[in-house]
Design a protein around this nucleic acid. Structure first.
Lengths: 255, 255
DNA sequence: CGGTTAATTGAATGTAGTCAATGGTTGTGG
DNA sequence: CCACAACCATTGACTACATTCAATTAACCG
């Protein structure tokens, strides 16, 4: 939250893209040179409301951001988490009307990047492909989220969420898969898991018996293998290169 | 199902792209010229299994295709439906490993289009943007699906699904929003709604009291306004131009 | 027709939601 | 430094929704 600059944030974004795409030095320079306006937002602040138009995408520099949908009675469903270095609104480049909202779960630093500049960067086919691939990754995680919401019950569902966040945090260097900060409240976690906060609390209690704690906004997983088994967690859908490497295939796909 | 040719299917695909993107005559010609292998598959046939690699995308020419995820016990969650003219696998161009499977719900005709040809077409920035936008549209529908699975109970959830399919069918000229063919079984619909087939059947019964019938693989909605209200259905997330026009904004976004 | 698959219903169980109240923590101002 | 307020976490009792198991009826196909 302290002392993040626009170039630093853009570098995080490049790191994220390089996780799945190859970019030349020149192409990286194009991204580093993107204009961006820094903005700090407090926890629980709505960045974009559902149905709003925007002329800029929103890169998370620090903190944690969520994409959500709201029901008529005001209840929310979080459909995606965005970690530092992730562009939570890259979708808005091809489609400036978002059907959903964005909220900062923790106090966060954001970088607003104008659509025009991103479109210009995307005139390079390799960069366009990297952006497209980033969107697909997002969709892949979302599909798994939907499957879990539809077909898993509370305990394995929450366990899966903890596994996913662990892998993603580790992939971005924000802790290890078995211990990482998750700066959100139980109510927000309930919005993500599709549970009420009461039932989420009970499910957390049950997870403690499995050696998983969520206290002080920090997740600790005693037995990773046991948790992945309980959650039926298979990281393929995260499209992380590590897994690909483990399978003996290419580290990155061709741009 | 009868007598669909590759060029005809590609024309349907162009129609779908033109719904949200502008393409010049030359750009349309590039897409029309894409190579494609026709293939007929019977109902309930798995086209791609989760985790498989592919070197071609899959365009639906006729029938109905679903993207699904499978749990360890074999239960499925359908996360997306694909109508004729939709490329159900466009994601696989930037990311050839799909984390999910594809199944034909009804007997369907498919056109397999090699990734190489699609990548080449995408070297045109306008076509790349149209493809990217198509992926984003998919993601937008998926996000709403997730929100409904997480936060709506059976009746409004199923109602929402019928509303969505009505709008999409109408948008593709496959019926009207209040009456259209949905060539699937109750068990398959249950996989999409995140319910057991038993409870889906009971929910259908309850929907009949609201003037909605699903019989003979055909959906009939007596009172559209009442159903959209029950379902809390707002078509913004479908990113259909019609709605944009109604709001007085541009029909299509700039390529 | 006869056999198979799909749809429908009943009864019992189980999971999650609702309502309501109690602890606990944190941060702030007196 | 304590008192208080505000928010968050936790628990109990009850209700409601959805699943499971099991059986029956209807529709479809060869």
């Amino acid at each position: 939250m302290i002392g993040v600059t626009t170039p630093e944030a853009l570098r995080l974004f490049i790191d994220r893209l390089l996780l799945r795409s190859s970019l030349s030095v020149a192409q990286r320079a194009v991204i580093t040179a993107l204009p961006g306006r820094l903005s700090k937002v407090p926890a629980c602040h709505d960045i974009i409301l559902p149905g709003e138009h925007t002329d800029h995408a929103c890169l998370v520099a620090s903190g944690l951001v969520a994409r959500f949908d709201t029901m008529a009675d005001g209840r929310r469903q979080i459909v995606a988490f965005y970690l530092p270095g992730e562009m939570c609104d890259l979708h808005s480049v091809p489609v400036p009307t978002s059907g959903w909202g964005l909220e900062a779960l923790a106090g966060s630093t954001l970088v607003f990047v104008p659509h025009g500049a991103l479109r210009e960067a995307a005139s390079d086919p390799a960069i366009a492909m990297a952006f497209w691939r980033d969107t697909v990754t997002d969709g892949s995680i979302l599909a798994k989220w939907a499957a879990n919401l539809g077909r898993k019950q509370a305990l394995p569902r929450l366990a899966h969420l903890f596994c996913e966040m662990g892998m993603r945090m580790e992939g971005r260097g924000l802790g290890t898969r078995t211990e990482y900060d998750l700066p959100i409240t139980q109510a927000q976690l309930a919005d993500a898991a599709g549970l009420t906060s009461v039932h989420l609390n009970r499910t957390l209690k049950a997870l403690r018996h499995e050696g998983v704690t969520f206290a002080g906004k920090r997740v600790r997983i005693a037995d990773w293998a046991a948790l992945t088994h309980l959650a039926e967690f298979d990281p393929v859908y995260l499209l992380l290169p590590e897994r690909e490497a483990a399978l003996g295939t290419a580290l990155r796909w061709r741009a």
